[in-house]
Write a protein that binds this DNA or RNA. Structure first.
Lengths: 201, 201, 201, 201
DNA sequence: AATGAATGAGCGTTCATTCAT
DNA sequence: AATGAATGAACGCTCATTCAT
């Protein structure tokens, strides 16, 4: 005999939980796990700090949840690229632009934070390692192979090429975490040269 | 122009102070400003934590000193490249390899930490911004111009190209701060394609 | 004077309220006032924690109510002993066995908890003191006097003897609050020697 | 009760550590592990709360240390009784009086708290169980045997008798933890009747 | 110069209590 | 009546910083 029916409660829970997660990823991705205080997340989400503990057992659990979420989102973002029209190289170009210019790339940035910071919970580290850069390389391999066969991508070791490309993108993403106005992400075409080496039309 | 003024040189010559700074940059560059505790630095340097306060007024001041020091070191590393023999592109290739493979690139990494982290003292931030990426681009412009005239570097906006190149290197450096065994820095040649675009021999 | 006034009786008859009180005394008597969380009581009673505040203004008020209830129950238990058949000493022996072996002596244990712990609400303390051990001694005096006249109880200061006897029982009860399997309550006959001193048949 | 003996003082040599332990046992034994706040201990010891963590890693560790200390003290107190002159019964009488009237029986009380409370660290619980009441019974057996042979102690199962006696003393000690002015410890002679059963001269 | 004892501000977390539904 | 989301005071603990020696 609940005063609120099951569905309403569920809705509130999901709503709040998502609200907190959005606030948390925003702060974590910018300030890292040490620099982020639970009160900052609460403030960003507009709730009391106590409420965070209704939805997440601890700061670490919250962080781990976000890392898992971000890994899934990142994989989705990569797989979505197969659905847009265009040649393989066009798809890669689009992907590059999206990653570099996307306003909210908190997911990628959180992963970078977790990868490069200290004090990250063991489980978060395991999640990231289990989906390490090789997993993303695997995801992109069909696209790169198609590009190479089409003559759009230079000859050579494709896995190495893809890993290099992803490393560069990863690195660039970390540079976007600040508000440094002097930093402007490079144009995608310049980066793409690494792949085409002048062979593209 | 000396990177350190007379007094700074004198201070750094102080054995203890240098010992502390070397320990500090090692820890800061790996763990960031929040993840680094004064006791870690003291332990790394083999002195008591109380002693740190004889040489530095505070953790922030120590960090700021290190940022200043690292900026100077970075500028030196870049300017040194002019002294090695070889064509412009060979010089750039060498520089790239050094940065990517150097065992101790604490200086670069500290700058990255300071650039991408939060909780960095205002003054450290000002130092970094004042010598922002543009300053490094300026330093490398003569080299790039020579490379372009020699036909080793692709045609196009050179400042943009240099900025892109430095951004990529900066980003890659942040990925090296961990012990992630799955990460291997890309070969310099691949990165260089961004600059040559197939025009190099 | 009825141990519970009309209104209290009415409230206690309230099913929900009684359910909560039974759950609460069970938890309080085992874990003490600090070790008991309102959520534990709610869980034990099978209701939401919010509901506790419909019946009791606060944790303290709940505890105070239970102390009052337990004091009344304890007095009843003592007075009931007059109704069983047997000589005075037989009655005392029975009482001793009951207290030591009773499975549910939460009431006595709650009083002990309240007597020996800190952080007990002032009012609970006053209730306990007002019915202090002397009140129980008073209750038992007729029984002891009869026993002494019958030659079953040793000569000497009866109040002192009764107080000593009750103190010992009180103390032993606190030892039963745990699940320590190495502890077994002593046999009543041994304790009774304090009273009889070899004079009983 | 005897303060620290030479050897223990050697271990606890540090003045501050001893100061903190004395303050801590005073508060813990009165208020239990939950009721005791680190700030109370700090206040009682006249130091800042931060200092406690220089000497003890955590509240639990401090508590465990005290339990161990108290167990050792309790064993010593029992074994010391063999050194005083007198018949076995006189020794037991003296021991009883000491335990009941000693102003500072924090050690015994801490053990009782740890035995009967909740939230006690697992290790503390193990220490207490490993020296459970049987260990103390073992310690006193020679004395009881001598008393029985001398005709001072009643015939019967001696281990049961000793266990009963110690249980009663343990229980009485918990009643002394408060400042309840209405409570006066019983005279030793009355308790001793349990052992003599009128057989003593 | 050098140590480490000592302090206290600040953060993560718990839980009694309130309140909208 | 009944629920559980929401709040915030308070506590355990960390660590930058100070200070007596």
């Amino acid at each position: 005999m609940a005063p609120l029916n099951e569905e309403q409660l569920h809705q509130i829970r999901d709503e709040r939980k998502e609200q907190i997660m959005r606030a948390a990823i925003k702060v974590f991705s910018k300030r890292g796990i040490f620099g982020t205080k639970m009160s900052m997340i609460a403030g960003e989400a507009g709730v009391s700090h106590g409420l965070l503990y209704h939805y997440f057992k601890s700061k670490d659990e919250l962080f781990i949840t976000l890392v898992q979420w971000s890994m899934d989102e990142a994989r989705h973002a990569l797989s979505d690229i197969y659905d847009v029209p265009g040649t393989p190289l066009e798809k890669i170009t689009l992907l590059t632009s999206m990653i570099l210019q996307e306003d909210d790339n908190s997911h990628f940035m959180l992963i970078q934070q977790a990868r490069t910071s200290d004090g990250v919970p063991e489980e978060a580290r395991r999640i990231i390692e289990s989906y390490s850069i090789h997993a993303f390389v695997d995801q992109l391999m069909p696209l790169f192979e198609a590009g190479q066969q089409a003559g759009e991508i230079a000859a050579g070791d494709l896995r190495e090429l893809a890993a290099c490309y992803l490393s560069v993108l990863s690195g660039l993403m970390t540079l976007r975490s600040q508000e440094d106005p002097s930093y402007a992400p490079p144009r995608a075409e310049l980066l793409l040269r690494m792949l085409t080496n002048g062979q593209g039309k």
